[in-house]
């Protein structure tokens, strides 16, 4: 399902310039980071040196550096600087695996296989990312009744028409037991509406996970 599709990893607004975060798609560990010019990157979350997660590291300008030994990588994933050997011209073979990235409709997307046409643009208001201890199928089955609304569309982007507006939901399958939903509202939304939706999302997670634990 995700091999040749764009998969959302995060709400754009939650990855600020100069920050990084970890994300998992069907078991694949990914670092998503935003460089000083505002461009997002999605790479394998592993430093080639000692296997440390790059998402534990830090962004310096247009490079991301590993927390362990400070090895720095440029926007193409190529290692450019090794602090322990400052004079060394770093071999071209030291690089992090990179994947295609897209930013649209308020989310950051990764393509782990063949690169499809860019994801559709849309005017949205970001709500939140919701991390659920439930498999994808159970999440989708529970959304209409649990959140309240009519579900349409297909993974990785579904819509839910609710009494508080239309949610555009990016679906990130984490692994066999966990799913993330990146929740946005189509068009503008007032703070009161967003607060009501945020409260509803808390309740949805609780009911879903309670049902899962009882099953």
């Amino acid at each position: 399902m995700t091999e040749d599709a764009w998969v959302p990893l995060a709400l754009s607004s939650m990855i600020e310039v100069g920050t990084s975060a970890g994300a998992v798609v069907q078991g694949q560990e990914i670092v998503v980071w935003r460089d000083s010019s505002g461009v997002a990157h999605t790479w394998e979350d592993r430093c080639p040196h000692r296997g440390m997660k790059m998402s534990f590291g830090f962004v310096r300008g247009d490079h991301i550096a590993c927390l362990y030994h400070g090895w720095e990588y440029d926007q193409a994933g190529q290692c450019r600087y090794i602090p322990a050997h400052p004079q060394l011209e770093v071999p071209k073979t030291i690089c992090v695996k990179t994947w295609a990235v897209a930013e649209a409709a308020g989310m950051i997307w990764v393509a782990l296989g063949a690169v499809p046409p860019p994801p559709a643009e849309a005017e949205v208001t970001a709500l939140r990312s919701l991390y659920l201890d439930a498999p994808l199928a159970a999440v989708l089955a529970a959304l209409p009744e649990g959140f309240g609304g009519t579900l349409a569309g297909q993974v990785p982007l579904v819509t839910l028409d609710t009494d508080l507006g239309t949610l555009r939901i990016g679906v990130q399958p984490i692994d066999a037991r966990r799913t993330a939903l990146h929740l946005t509202v189509a068009g503008p939304a007032t703070p009161d509406t967003l607060l009501a939706l945020a409260t509803r999302s808390d309740a949805f997670r609780l009911s879903l996970e309670t049902a899962g634990a009882a099953a």
């Binding site: 995060a10 709400l11 939650m14 600020e16 920050t19 975060a21 970890g22 994300a23 998992v24 998402s55 534990f56 939140r128 990312s129 991390y131 993330a180």
Partner: peptide, 19 residues
Amino acid sequence: SRDFNVDHDEFPALRLWAR
């Protein structure tokens, strides 16, 4: 929290706050 094996992936609002 990583010391007891809870990563920061699931807490985007806390990541921004911690910053």
